[in-house]
Amino acid sequence: MTITAKANSLWEYANPRKFLATSERLLPFFWLASTTCLVVGLVWGFFFTPDDYKQGSTVKIIYLHVPSALMAINCWLMMLAASLIWLVRRHHVSALAARAAAPVGIVFTLVALVTGAIWGQPMWGSWWAWDPRLTSFLILFLFYLGYVALWEAIEDPDTAADLTSVLCLVGSVFAILSRYAVNFWNQGLHQGASVMRVAAVTGSDTEEKVSNIYFFPLMLCIVGFVLLFIALVLYRTCTEIRARRIKALLARERANA
């Protein structure tokens, strides 16, 4: 009995231990690199780029808006991948990484929404427009909230991991569906003038539309956000692993006593 339990626990801890050690080694590098990139990129963008002839100085918001929006979507993709790994391979670290990433995704989505709204106020004349992109992000935000709420609501960690993983899979399909539905819905309402303007700064035509002066600091900010995301997720995953370990130890203590 004790031997199997020991073997089991060793196997259980083998991966998380290694994960902890590796990320402890990597984390300082990621913190440093992301801070450097973000500070340099934002300072460069904020102080040393000219105003756009049409948007004036609001163009500077791009350095926060675009990277956070990009990472908000990528964060969901990362959670999707982690959920799949958990469902197929049952690696606990994977499920915990998905859990750790969700609040990061919420904050990035919030940053994208808030900066979008603040930018939209002088540009469109209103804080909120039911523009397809904004609406899709609102829906993404709801998905994140539901995901985190489900994690918090369920006590048994494995059940929670399973359920949130399935929710993540189903949610991804519906998120893509919503994206197209919202596109369709708004074009049914009015012409896409505002869509074009948003596409000019957030879409794939960034390179053409945004000239090199804006492009380099923007790239730096994007790299900074990516690194920040990695650092945060690694760090938070370590926290989750430790929290889980505490839970397991306390449970064993109670079982022994």
Partner: peptide, 24 residues
Amino acid sequence: TVGLKRGGLLLSLLVLPLYVPTLI
């Protein structure tokens, strides 16, 4: 949400974004 004591609010939160395409 079936196993949860007070799953009603969570249920709405989970289902609402899933309803968006159908509603649209």
